[in-house]
Amino acid sequence: MKALAGACLLIFVLAAASLFVGVSDVTPGKLIGADAGSRALQVLLASRIPRTLAIILAGMSMAVAGFIMQMLARNRFVEPSTAGTMESASLGMLVVTLLAPQAPVMGKMLAASAFALAGTALFLRILRSIPLRSVLIVPLVGIMMGNVISAVATFIAYRFDLLQALAAWTTGDFSSVLRGRYELLWLSFLLTGIAYFAADRFTVAGLGEDFTTNLGLHYRRVLRLGLVIVSMVTASVVATVGMVPFVGLIVPNIVAMAMGDNMRHALPWVAILGAGLVLACDLAGRLIRFPYEIPVGTVMGVVGSALFLALLLRKRRQLG
């Protein structure tokens, strides 16, 4: 409990730093005694606070989504960016933008959720029909499938001159987050709450179908609930800030090493560290070539793939 409070404190510090880093000059000094119309206060309210909240919400929910997927696929290396979920969601955004450009953002996000759900279900189906389920083959299959889907999306976007819009969904970037344009992410926060409520079911499902049935739960129902949560979280993140890869992979793995997979205990840690990792990466992206920004998707891609490789190699040593 004490450690958890400490982690929360760290998030507060990072969040505070996030509020005061940027091109516009916003400092605590300028805010104290500033009148309601001052530029610093406006920037804080319209941009910095929404951005920081968006980072925390996206980081939390993506980490939890990855955790759920690892339980359901019974594989340590599965998460929305290694299972075709993210790519499917952005394909969904593209299709709905083409077919119903006037649809409200909520409607687009629901369409993207449906695509993400279908893509993830397809991935799980492919997994079931692969005879040799090597631990390392599973994410490779997912990454390949994701690449095929994103190739389709790129082709469509190219034909309809929507490559720029597609890039916005495929590269996670918090720089365009403004008040009124990130609130969808509260939905994924709500979904994270539901995941915590159902945490024991997911842990049981992680034990496998036989154990789940023995304990009186319906495996298919737990699977469905998990897939809906994962798909909607992924879609809402893709729709508002774009793909943030690897968070859902690295954070649950590190937490599992330290304290195991019992979701009831581990989920708060996964959520907090997910928020912390994305906050840190976004801050790094803002500071590395200040005053320009590197999108968080890119920073995360570099940091994440390095950590991913380290985890893979470690696992290989364990497997001998």
Partner: peptide, 24 residues
């Protein structure tokens, strides 16, 4: 042949045996 990839302690696993009674 129960292969389990979830990382649980022995006590956590055994506690899940109570799930039908305690619902977690």
């Amino acid at each position: 042949d129960n292969s389990i990839s979830v990382r649980l302690t022995v006590r956590e696993l055994v506690t899940f045996g109570r799930y039908p009674h305690s619902k977690g």
